[in-house]
Design a protein around this nucleic acid. Sequence first.
DNA 1: ATAGGGCTTGGACCTAGGTTTAAGGTCAAG
DNA 2: CTTGACCTTAAACCTAGGTCCAAGCCCTAT
Lengths: 121, 121
Amino acid sequence: MKIGEIAKAAGVTTSRIRFYEKRGIIAPAARGANGYRDYPEELVALLRFIEQAQGLGFTLREIASVEVRSGPHPISCDEAIRLLSAKRDAVDALIAEAKERMRKIDTLIGELRENQESPKE
Amino acid sequence: MKIGEIAKAAGVTTSRIRFYEKRGIIAPAARGANGYRDYPEELVALLRFIEQAQGLGFTLREIASVEVRSGPHPISCDEAIRLLSAKRDAVDALIAEAKERMRKIDTLIGELRENQESPKE
DNA sequence: ATAGGGCTTGGACCTAGGTTTAAGGTCAAG
DNA sequence: CTTGACCTTAAACCTAGGTCCAAGCCCTAT
């Protein structure tokens, strides 16, 4: 598959694919006789995985550290589980913080509303 | 308070404070006769709030939209409630997003563990 | 064979959020 | 009065994650 085809199939831009290759997030593509990049269809899954991982808050660096070493089946090792667990904890902490902040905001809103109802103080 | 003092008190760098001022995240500081920035102690709390908000995933732009207006000209009670409510909704959305993120992470971890138990297919 | 797309490269540019640096002014202590 | 710590500015630089562009090749259809 040419770069445009795989980009379309995976729903990413061609420039992004080349960017990923340049940064080592994906392996350099094989080249046809004309110099065009030639991709196996499996790369579609990988590109989707990268997007998914980014959506989960992973940096490209983190993704590369998992993906590059483990080849075509990227998400299948202890390390991936370790990284995901760490990320899970981080997201959990984020939620706790956000809830605390919301509680504070709610308190503040409540106070303001009271102020409004009894403007005299 | 001079910039170094307030920076230390708030646990941020002086360059960051100047950067915030330049970007309009905080109001321009008063200046002493020597041209030095002179800060009220309340700014410590604001700087801490900015860090907190960033920790919750808010961009500086979003933070500025609330902060700048609550600075020089005190906003009305109504407007404060409106802004806070918008913020509340944003935090709420963030929490929802984070929960979804965690759900996906848990799913992935589950799949990986299954993969581990039944190795190659 | 000529037009149009798609491909190649490198490098410039972009937003976000800062840090670092250069060149200089100020202040308090010794 | 000199030293060192602190302040001022603008501008350059940085990482992350990309996009855009120019100049030029390749392929396919008409």
